[in-house]
Write a protein that binds this DNA or RNA. Sequence first.
DNA 1: ATATTAAAGACTTTTGTTATCTCTAATAAG
DNA 2: CTTATTAGAGATAACAAAAGTCTTTAATAT
Lengths: 139, 139
Amino acid sequence: MKYSNATNYALHTMVYLIWLPKASTVGVQELAEFQKLSPTYLSKILTKLTKAGLIESTPGAKGGYKISKSPKEISFLDVIIAIEGESNLFNCSIHHNEGCLIEKVMRESEDNMKEELSNRLLIDIVEKMELQKQAKESN
Amino acid sequence: MKYSNATNYALHTMVYLIWLPKASTVGVQELAEFQKLSPTYLSKILTKLTKAGLIESTPGAKGGYKISKSPKEISFLDVIIAIEGESNLFNCSIHHNEGCLIEKVMRESEDNMKEELSNRLLIDIVEKMELQKQAKESN
DNA sequence: ATATTAAAGACTTTTGTTATCTCTAATAAG
DNA sequence: CTTATTAGAGATAACAAAAGTCTTTAATAT
């Protein structure tokens, strides 16, 4: 069991977009470059983020992507669900087994993890990164 | 991201083995039957559980499988790791990115989930099942 | 109108899981 | 010690999902 690469890329992209000066839009080109990805592939991921309402896209010249809602409202979980969907990590493998107790435990642990990830905001990461950067520069 | 079917089968098998009268051994045949699995396939899973030290196997006539250590020591996490291994759910996708803050958050949530699953014992499931069974029978 | 950029869809490749089959090794029982 | 029985190992096949590419279409600012 692993998170998909796409989720990984999506998280890095989102952090990058939040870190960017507000309201500036960026093309796939730039976003793909800093992660060493092909633009066409990253484009798929960006489309998912757009459909999830996490970013906005504008086609055409000077177009590109930018954060849509306030960064303070974007959690890790939001990004994960945008990419991975919201199906459960565990479904009892036995047919006609309503109320499987194994499943119940597994679900609880999953729910707790989701709860935690919904409380971790991407903006906090960006702020920490900026602090780290400043500390480095003052050396 | 999903748990593998193998983990699912392994959990059900372990619960079955714990639920069994102590010290009695069961062959793959029986274990495969109640889950509608092919014995050869389930056998692979059982071998993993054996190598992880969760069950014991004895070949030959009257052989089979049984719980090895005390059921009070077997957690959900033990079974999951026996099947899925212990690699991390998330590894930063960017090369040479020591101390990635995204990874850090993801790891923390993973660690918390594992911590929780290491505190959930299979024997508790078995006990609940027995209670449910008794309640049903007294109807 | 045109250059520019995102979106959509078909498609290929890669990877990991799931599953089967066959052969070997171990062991209990007669 | 032989035989029936059961687990283990290894190769391989089938399948599914993920990862990634290519081409075409749609939207938009200048």
